[in-house]
């Protein structure tokens, strides 16, 4: 007999719980005021605006370094999340089983290139990352960031990452 599907709320709580656990483990994400929203397996990162993100008070504009840091964070979380998602969904782990797992080792940035396309206005910034290649050792990720208009990018970036080895 087919197993009855889990109630939606249980699935959502498990997935959101796993995401929050990952994000909250990293102090810098909290320092920068970065949060993540999830729809299915798709993540959108938000850098919630605060005055300390400003680099040029005269314009005013968000610091390019903060934008780059935001994009790099979105890329790293995307990679770590893809790994957690695979474990969670393929191995059918329960919320409690996921919470008991050690936090995944994070990928390490090899290089990261940020392309600044327009001024970051003093408002929230959003980003989505796309994993273009993910091998056993290396991954290549592209990230796009925007503010008011999804098709008018503030910045885009490409980075290469060293993946954590699977056997510790």
């Amino acid at each position: 007999m087919r197993k009855k599907p889990e109630p939606m709320q249980v699935i959502k709580e498990r997935r959101d719980g796993a995401l929050l656990r990952l994000v909250e483990a990293i102090p810098y994400i909290n320092f920068m005021g970065i949060t993540f929203q999830r729809r299915g397996d798709e993540l959108t990162a938000t850098m919630n605006y605060t005055d300390m993100l400003i680099g040029n008070p005269a314009l005013p504009a968000i610091h390019g370094g903060a934008t780059a840091a935001f994009l790099e964070t979105a890329a790293i979380i995307e990679l770590a999340w893809a790994d957690i998602w695979a474990k969670m969904e393929m191995e059918r782990l329960s919320g409690a089983e996921i919470a008991a797992l050690p936090l995944p080792k994070l990928p390490k940035t090899i290089d990261f290139t940020t392309d600044y396309l327009s001024i970051g206005h003093p408002r929230d910034v959003y980003a989505r990352a796309r994993i273009n290649r993910s091998g056993r050792r290396y991954a290549s990720v592209h990230v796009e960031a925007w503010q008011d208009n999804r098709s008018k990018l503030v910045a885009q970036a490409t980075g290469h990452f060293l993946m954590p080895s699977k056997n510790g």
Partner: peptide, 11 residues
Amino acid sequence: HGGAVSALMDT
């Protein structure tokens, strides 16, 4: 975090 280092290098 690499992002903090990149903010320093950018500045």
